[in-house]
Design a protein around this nucleic acid. Sequence first.
DNA 1: CCTTAATTGGACTAATTTAGTCTTATTATA
DNA 2: TATAATAAGACTAAATTAGTCCAATTAAGG
Lengths: 141, 141
Amino acid sequence: MKLTQGADYGMAAVLYLSQRSEDRRYSLDEISRATEIPEEFLRKIFQTLVKSGIINSFKGRGGGVSLARSARDITVAEVIKPLEEEMGLVRCLREKENCPRSSECMASNFWRKTQQNFFEILNSTTIKDLIEGGKQNARKG
Amino acid sequence: MKLTQGADYGMAAVLYLSQRSEDRRYSLDEISRATEIPEEFLRKIFQTLVKSGIINSFKGRGGGVSLARSARDITVAEVIKPLEEEMGLVRCLREKENCPRSSECMASNFWRKTQQNFFEILNSTTIKDLIEGGKQNARKG
DNA sequence: CCTTAATTGGACTAATTTAGTCTTATTATA
DNA sequence: TATAATAAGACTAAATTAGTCCAATTAAGG
């Protein structure tokens, strides 16, 4: 039961940007050194986050990345989901077809709910909440 | 974000036993065929569950396995935890030493809480609850 | 317009983890 | 004593994950 390293790093990178001036662009080199995330890996992570609209990137001289939105408007779920390739706690929930075994389906109903509960937390927590700390569960209600 | 196959199978096997007469012992061969879990793998899973006290096993002719306790007294957490080797959603939470990066620690506080919340659900749901279905969240309170 | 500093995209590789198997030993019963 | 079972643990294969590399593109500055 763990997140991919990419998701873990992704959060760190977004948190890094969120705590800094939004006027600037930050090169991967700079972020990589500050966060100790391997640069080439970080590059791939940002490519994903750019596609999902959380990060803006700029090519060429003076280029780099920046948050596409305010940290107040980015949820943890938005960072994690695109970086977690395989979702679904158990095989049943990952497969297309329905499982033939009824006993497993009892379990999968449970896992489905538990997983939903998990993602509700991620959906209702913003990056800003994390920075402010402790208040995660007092949101979006 | 997924459970190991062992944990997934483990639940299926425990559910299988829970839905059958408690007077008998069930051979791995029988359980394996009924649940379609590979027998040798199932064997390893039961070995783990025996160690953690959920399952009783009996060697020799007429041997096999049975639930050590009533399904009403076995929680999902008890089945999952021993079968999930690496716990901890993110690297920070898996490592012994504290992380040097403050930005990640903001995240890890959040992940710690979220993970706790997850395990609270597993702790408060019994196998019996799953079989009865739907009532998972109306327990332990 | 040419050089340089940056990202993009995608193929590639290495390491780790996971899933599953095999083999030998032990045990209980008929 | 033969047989039908689990125990323990080493081993292997497959899959996933983490991380790297490289050729192409793009934008800015001189």
